[in-house]
Simulated scan of single mutants.
Amino acid sequence: MRTYVVKILGLVCFFISYMAASQTCLPDFDADLTVDEFVDNADGTVTDESLGLVWMRCSLGQIWENETCTGDANELTWQQALQAAHGYEYAGQLGWRVPNIKELASLTERSCVRPAINELFFPNTYSDDYWTSTPSIVDPKRAWVIAFFNSSNSLKDKNLFVFTRLVKTAD
C-alpha cells in the first residue's frame, strides 16, 4: 500500500511540474496571428520592422541550432551584461546591446505566461527576469528587469545574476 501511495504521489508531482514548466496562453491567443510582428532572418535573429530592431532569438549563452535555442543561458550581473554586449558579434553582426525597458517590454506576450513571449520566435526563453539597460533614477544600485514569467517589470539590485537577451538597431 505504501509503495502504491508513493508512486501516485510521484506521478502527481511529475504532472504538476510539467504543467508549471510549459507555456500557458489564453484560449483565444493564436500564435500564427502574430507572425507578422517579426521577420525571421534565418541566422538566429529576427527583425521587428515596426520598431527597427534586430533581436537575438536566444538568451545570451544559448546557441541557435536546428531552429531552436539550446544550452543554458548565462546569468550575469547588470554590469557583466552591459560588458558582454560591448563588442559582441553574433550572426556576423556587431552593435549588439542590452535593450532598454521599452524595447524589452515590446517582446512580452501578455496573452501567455511561463514564458510571456512568443515561443515561435523566441523558443526556450526562461520564465524569469531579464536585464534592461535602464537604471533606476532613484536608486543607483538597481536597474529595471522584465519578468518573462508574466510580463511584469521591477527593479533589481545590479549585483544579482539575471538573464540577458541582446538587441541592435536595424541597419
Rank of each mutant, 00 (worst) to 15 (best):
A85F: 11
F38V: 08
K102D: 15
F122V: 11
N124G: 03
C58V: 15
R114M: 06
T68P: 08
N118K: 08
S151D: 08
N41A: 02
A170L: 01
L60R: 04
T134F: 10
T70G: 11
A91G: 04
G71E: 10
Y90T: 04
M56V: 02
N100R: 04
P99L: 04
K7S: 10
A81S: 15
R2S: 09
R2H: 13
A170C: 03
N66S: 08
Y126D: 12
S59Q: 12
E67D: 15
V39I: 08
S136I: 02
F14D: 00
M56Y: 00
Y4N: 05
T134C: 13
P140I: 06
A21N: 08
C58M: 11
F15Y: 06
Q93V: 01
L33F: 02
W78K: 03
L104F: 02
W78G: 14
L11K: 04
I117M: 04
A84T: 12
L120P: 00
E89I: 14
D36H: 15
F121L: 05
L33Y: 08
D32P: 00
L82P: 03
T3Q: 13
Q62W: 12
T3P: 00
E109H: 06
G87Y: 12
R97G: 11
Y88R: 03
S152C: 03
S133Q: 04
A91C: 09
G71M: 10
A81Y: 07
G44Q: 03
V113Q: 10
N74R: 12
D30H: 14
L51D: 06
P99D: 05
I117V: 14
M1V: 03
T77C: 09
K102A: 15
L9S: 01
K156A: 14
R97K: 14
R165C: 09
I101A: 06
T47M: 01
C58E: 11
L51W: 00
S127P: 14
A170N: 07
S152Y: 09
T24L: 08
L104T: 06
T125Q: 02
V113Y: 14
D157W: 06
R110H: 11
P115Q: 05
